[in-house]
Amino acid sequence: MNKLKYTLHLVLVGLFISYSALGQVAAALYSTTSGNTQFSSDTPLENIQAENKRGQAVFNTKTRELAIRMNMKDFVFPNKLMQEHFNENYMESDQYPTASFRGKVNQAIDLGKEGISKVSATGTFTVHGQSQTRTLEGTIAVRRGTIIIDSSFEVQLEDHHIDVPKIVFMKIAQTIQVKAQYTLAPMNK
């Protein structure tokens, strides 16, 4: 009986420690569901831009893991015909509804101090169902309890098997410029 009591104590103590750890992990998560992602395709014939204001991001400040995802259909174009062609012909959004990045920020960030620092994140970048391992450059700013992630990078259509027919080849850039800004707040858990 004594042995059982001892084991039970041990388990309870262990659980207590795990629970406090659980609290810490939850507090280390920052997230948003209204991140901004823009892209532009610039050619001499036509400049095309679109914006997605519903990007989701989670950042774990302990492990520095970063996960970002968005619906392709949430990209809004000023020109609705282009929006239709984007979803229907190029991204095939019914088949590949989302784009995502899962990775890890390579530098340590001091959350206690307000300020901005240059960082990079390495991970899996998925668009049009095609994944690439990429290191994306950007900045992380700590401001009034929020974490602001900024990044500009390029996406090669070829890398993600996005086909452009010859007839519109001159109007669509092979390299797409992407700009992302995500303001993450602590998660209430």
Binding site: L29, S31, T33, R54, Q56, V58, F59, N60, E65, L66, A67, R69, M70, N71, K73, D74, Q83, E84, N87, E88, P97, T98, R102, M187
Partner: peptide, 17 residues
């Protein structure tokens, strides 16, 4: 980490084009 977030579908209000 994505498990921490609401499902993407719930935010999507997509017209069928």
């Amino acid at each position: 980490l994505f498990d921490q977030l609401p499902s993407l579908d719930s935010s999507l209000n997509a017209p069928v084009s």
